[in-house]
Amino acid sequence: MRAGDRGRGRGDREMRIINISYDGANGVPVIREPASALKNNTGTWRVFRPTIDSDRCVRCGKCWVFCPEGAIHVSDADIWIDYDHCKGCGICVNGCRFITAQREV
């Protein structure tokens, strides 16, 4: 779709849009890039920072399941928190002895 700043028809006279345009936008309010919200750092919301004691962690999966942000990642070998997207709600801390919270500095 064509995006422009001039109305056709009677050329320039009818209407002109000044200074309202967005890179890559094509006039249709649709978001085409899946999971693009990962670009947003919602980790800045966090007041309390959860830390997993990965040595004692038994990989039960509870923290991973209940994280509303999907910010906890598990593999057979490892478990880690994506601090760019953890909002610090504390659900994981509340649900596990091996996760502790410290106030962010």
Partner: peptide, 24 residues
């Protein structure tokens, strides 16, 4: 694609594009 999501400042851009489309 995600359609019908919220916008902030872009609102006026999209509305003005409707005006443009009407001209076209």
């Amino acid at each position: 694609m995600s359609m019908g999501g919220a916008v902030f400042d872009e609102y006026m851009y999209f509305r003005s594009q409707q005006r443009m489309a009407m001209c076209n």
